[in-house]
Design a protein around this nucleic acid. Structure first.
Length: 271
DNA sequence: CGCCAGGCTTCTA
DNA sequence: TAGAAGCATGGC
């Protein structure tokens, strides 16, 4: 991988494959917006960034070399060899077709709390509305950066009450968000230390939170704890695996089942 | 307007 | 242990 600081922009190349737009807008993260010039505006870890992809290079604005090296390289999972994973998946006819169609979908390494909170909101909800609720959460309770707001910390949310959160218009999920914020900020649930647990152990911990079942826990583990062996099964994945894998999803892909899962999710969206 | 949404908790048999 | 009801709000 090559990183080049051009002053007004930073250019990254030689990172392998990356379908940036689809990766940012395939239902794994909810804060990325495409601008009229086709660049993507987003925020994570309290920082804002503008990024676009052209001819296998990434062009970054509104950031700095330190943040690129310390935050974004990792966030976009650029150190991982997806070529190896994609070629392994090409042995499966369903996944091979999906890879041809979608290119390289990377699993973003998101902040654990943001993933947890976002996927609590996602329960029995549609993606446009999830984005709206998350946006209101940030605008009302996050900190203003350049043009965006940061994702509010668990501590900040934990000090609020249901009435404060009614601006989110998140319905029955509001007490769930509060319970998660309180358990995380009190230390009863330690997301960072959960990275060293197995998927099963992490599920058990996360499901102590009211409103967190196996699916929300698994999305938190895959997208927030970056455990790519975790395979969240929602209504789409359930339907499409029953249809395309009558004998079950093949176990040989277990090390990166979560990445395969994202391809199946994209396939299911227009089927 | 009606159907549905990256589910979860609680109640019931 | 399995299945259904109820949950709040809106996207389409």
């Amino acid at each position: 991988m090559k990183i080049c600081d051009m002053g007004d922009k930073i250019i990254i190349s030689d990172y392998g494959e990356f379908n940036l737009g689809l990766s940012l807008d395939c239902g794994q993260a909810f804060r990325w917006r495409m601008k009229p010039d086709l660049s993507w505006q987003g925020a994570a870890f309290g920082k804002e960034i503008n990024i676009r992809e052209e001819n296998n290079t990434l062009i970054i604005k509104n950031s700095c070399i330190d943040d690129v090296k310390n935050i974004w390289i990792d966030y976009f999972d650029l150190n991982r060899d997806y070529g190896k994973i994609l070629s392994a998946m090409s042995a499966d006819s369903v996944l091979s077709e999906a890879v041809l169609r979608f290119g390289c979908i990377r699993i973003l390494r998101q902040e654990p709390w943001e993933a947890l909170c976002s996927f609590i909101i996602s329960a029995c909800n549609n993606i446009p509305r999830i984005k709206g609720i998350v946006e209101r959460l940030c605008e009302n309770f996050g900190e203003k950066k350049d043009s965006m707001y940061s994702f509010p910390s668990a501590k900040k949310i934990s000090l609020l009450n249901q009435e404060d959160l009614s601006v989110l218009r998140a319905g029955y999920r509001i007490p769930f968000i509060l319970d998660a914020a309180r358990k995380v900020s009190s230390g009863e649930i330690n997301l960072e230390s959960m990275k060293s647990l197995s998927v099963e152990e992490a599920e058990k911990e996360l499901m102590k939170i009211n409103g967190v079942g196996k699916k929300v826990a698994d999305c938190t583990i895959l997208f927030g704890l970056s455990k790519s062996e975790c395979f969240p099964v929602d209504r789409h994945i359930k339907r499409i695996t029953e249809e395309l894998y009558p004998n079950g999803f093949p176990a040989e892909y277990r090390d990166f089942a979560g990445i395969a899962q994202q391809y199946l999710f994209c396939l299911s969206l227009d089927k």
